[in-house]
Design a protein around this nucleic acid. Sequence first.
DNA 1: GCCAACGTTGGC
DNA 2: GCCAACGTTGGC
Length: 151
Amino acid sequence: MACWLMKSEPDEFSIDDLVRTRTVPWFGVRNYLARNYMRDQMKVGDDVLFYHSSCPEPGIAGLAKVCSNAYPDETQFDRKSKYFDAKATRESPRWMLVDVELVRKTRLLSLAELRSIEALADLIILQRGNRLSITPVSPAHWKIINKLLKA
DNA sequence: GCCAACGTTGGC
DNA sequence: GCCAACGTTGGC
């Protein structure tokens, strides 16, 4: 079972929103590598670290799971959406997503705290210049983070 | 608001 | 296919 870190801007969709909705289609990803992770590698049951980005307190805010296979992101077809993509068609959709379901809201494990832990130094989101909204997390990193979330 | 880093676009 | 220009991300 793989583990992933998925960034969301809480202004757009926060962990509290997920507590309300229980599941969410991970709409709006417009980066090919992140799309490929969802389309080609994610499996139902994979673990997800739900991360708040571009906000006053960035960090991991909850645990979730992948709960669907990949399917087309509806927002690419919606002219009124900021995620509309004129080059995408229903016959050949460009953007795929998976559904994510809540496991539980956790304490906020802040970016600063993540950075302070030596064993997490090579976590992808901590690397200089990393901007990817979906990144794989190794089993070793997952174990450490999971423990920290319980603390 | 700044700015480093990176992805995408488009002319050639 | 190269690469400069531009746009976006996201922490600070």
